[in-house]
């Protein structure tokens, strides 16, 4: 494991902690897309099926359990917590799951490195992760008043993806025979999805203004 990978994972972890803290402290999930959280839950479940079959390291196992547990906690709060669920922007969070899930599923059936249930589901999770942030970005654009923590959450998620690209470059240069084309291409697509957001996030930070995305 190299520094970029570790920093990437820690940034990912931090993004989730920021979201948990925001929702818990303010008792509000305003501006948070339940659709994106549920897509992440699908991503983590499909990818981490190997928790039961393939032990890589204690670090990997612990992180997988944390990602699963924290995502399901957020979903539980947004759906069932008696105070928090009332603050969910149900009417604005209208992105349709099937527009993302079906193409990713079809693509994973065609483009995979091995046609087995585990491998196809793993590949599906890679493709779905690349686009899972889209409902959140759409909701953000619709919500005029973006609070800082929601903005920081998305910024940290985007940073995690950028650090993973550096991790792949490092691994490519240091590990013989290391290559994973499907992951690389999906990861680059995923990072590109954030570029527009990054632009407005950095601009609002430099100008000391509240973040808002143009419609």
């Amino acid at each position: 494991m190299n520094l970029f990978r570790l920093l990437g994972d820690m940034t990912h972890l931090l993004s989730i902690i920021v979201l948990l803290l925001k929702i818990n402290a303010t008792r509000s999930c305003r501006g948070v897309s339940l659709k994106t959280q549920e897509l992440y839950a699908i991503v983590f479940v499909c990818r981490y099926l190997d928790l039961f079959t393939n032990f890589i390291s204690l670090y990997n196992t612990v992180m997988k359990v944390i990602f699963l547990g924290s995502t399901f906690t957020i979903i539980y709060w947004m759906r069932f917590h008696k105070v928090i669920r009332v603050t969910y922007d149900r009417d604005q969070d209208t992105f349709r799951y099937q527009f993302l899930i079906i193409p990713c599923l079809l693509l994973s059936l065609i483009l995979n490195s091995e046609f087995t249930v585990m491998e196809v589901l793993w590949t599906f999770s890679i493709y779905l992760e690349a686009v899972a942030i889209l409902p959140q970005l759409v909701l953000l654009q619709r919500t005029n008043n973006i609070d800082n923590l929601t903005g920081n959450y998305i910024f940290l998620l985007g940073s995690y993806r950028a650090l993973y690209i550096l991790n792949w470059i490092y691994r490519f240069l240091t590990e013989p025979n290391y290559r994973q084309y499907l992951v690389w291409i999906s990861g680059i697509v995923q990072t590109i999805v954030y570029i527009d957001f990054f632009y407005y996030y950095i601009r609002s930070w430099k100008n000391n203004e509240k973040l808002s995305l143009p419609a």
Partner: peptide
């Protein structure tokens, strides 16, 4: 695995 895909990342 086939194609050199690694599963050691998160």
């Amino acid at each position: 695995t086939a194609g050199g895909e690694h599963h050691d990342e998160l």
